[in-house]
Design a protein around this nucleic acid. Structure first.
Lengths: 249, 249
DNA sequence: CGGGATGTTGCGGTTTTGTGCAGGATTTTC
DNA sequence: GAAAATCCTGCACAAAACCGCAACATCCCG
């Protein structure tokens, strides 16, 4: 059997079944596993397949991009994401809400991080899936089109069963007097449940949202543990929050 | 034997068998392998064949196996998606698995369709979300990186609570003797649960996967209600399935 | 008809490619 | 944390490709 012929067959199998095992192929074609391994390596180099331990996967499947569309205050959110990403250590269980800042955090996570992320935000899940060493747990329920997150009683009762180490909350408005507020009833219920289910709650917010408020209350400022903005922690606008016992980063 | 005559013969052989070996040809025509090599080189220069180490391959051979689009057999999957999309009516509850064919179905659904789709496939969910009138229910659990679908006991017990009208199953291999089979244990469990939870099970498969099988069994052919391929329903390869009581479309 | 130009083929030697194997490193799995 | 599976690296060897050359055939034109 010719080399190219063999490689074409492998490609065919991968495309057909999305996955092949080296041991399997070597037996089918009567060549050593070493040869198969070299074929897979070559096909990977050509970008035709994705080689993994023990075999190969189809490429077409994992190839859906999510372009960085014009995210408001992108530069600020990037700074916040980097500060937040540094807090996640190997082995942690992390609960996250939705929102563009959290999605940016998902993109920013180091490639070699080994942790478990739990979320109901579809765009965030898509980003987590791109990281090879991150386990992703999806909170199921009905998808809210406006926030692209699963909401409802089912989602809340699932969250209640969890006790995560960290919880990253992308927030919409924060104010010392009114606490953390939002404008979507379902999302508020969800965030409340998340706060209950985490040992440490970290809020992510661009400074513009600080000292603003919205109709529905999530919780008081003192119930959160940390606040991350793009500003320097010593910036005067953050002082009231530090005074209220929130760690500011 | 003249040069032209020899080359014509080689071309004929390549087109006939999709592959020739230099050693073989040199013996058949009683010329040195060097001469054959030079012939192949010339034919390759004319774009008539593809020369490889040890022989030559026909063009159709490598074209056949190399996906032109990102998605393998895109055109075929598009046809299947259109046939399937026509079956979904307003108000229906539809359960779907993962796989590129199902994702294509999600893209193909008419814009004004009002229905509820339930799935654990992240790429499919992303597509459903683009439709303004479709309600999306996410089945939560741990995400399997290879199949981009949520798998596990939690997912299965959620599916069990559902009774959907339709279930679209992208399948990996189908065979009258072995039934419907797959190569991923977790995915098989999920698909089994889906079959139980739907009134009507519709399998989507490109014809290439017909009469092939994989290590793990999902169910017998008679347990599904409909089979959709890109072929005409009267195509002989589909006859055995129609005979087994499956509606072929 | 002759002789040079051109084209084709086979051969010997060298280089490149493809394959399998042994070992040790690495990863996965239980 | 040890056993098993899979990987990587270097090596050996065979098969194929390549290169230059010589032998022969063919053609062309005076």
């Amino acid at each position: 059997m010719l080399k190219r012929e063999r490689q074409a067959y492998i490609l065919h199998q991968v495309n057909l079944h999305n996955k092949v095992l080296s041991s399997n192929l070597s037996q089918e074609m009567n060549v050593s596993e070493d040869t198969i391994r070299r074929d897979l390596l070559e096909l990977t180099g050509q970008g035709k397949i994705i080689k993994v331990h023990g075999g190969a996967l189809s490429h077409s499947f994992s190839n859906f991009y999510t372009p960085v569309n014009n995210v408001y205050s992108y530069a600020h959110k990037k700074i916040i994401a980097e500060k937040a990403a540094a807090l996640v250590k190997n082995g942690m269980f992390v609960l996250t809400s939705g929102g563009t800042t959290v999605i940016e955090l998902a993109r920013t996570l180091p490639h070699d991080l080994r942790a478990t992320f739990i979320s109901g935000s579809i765009p965030a899940i898509v980003e987590y899936m791109h990281h090879p060493n991150i386990e992703v747990i999806v909170i199921g329920d009905k998808v809210s089109k406006s926030s692209k997150i699963t909401v409802g009683g089912e989602a809340i009762s699932r969250i209640r069963q969890i006790k995560a180490e960290l919880c990253f909350l992308g927030i919409n408005a924060i104010d010392v007097r009114h606490g953390i507020t939002d404008n979507d009833w379902d999302v508020v219920q969800l965030k409340k449940a998340m706060i209950e289910s985490a040992q440490k709650v970290i809020c992510l917010s661009i400074s513009e949202k600080i000292n603003s408020f919205q109709p529905i209350k999530i919780c008081d400022v003192k119930e959160i543990d940390m606040l991350i903005t793009e500003l320097d922690p010593l910036h005067p606008v953050l002082q009231p929050y530090a005074d209220a016992g929130v760690e500011v980063l």
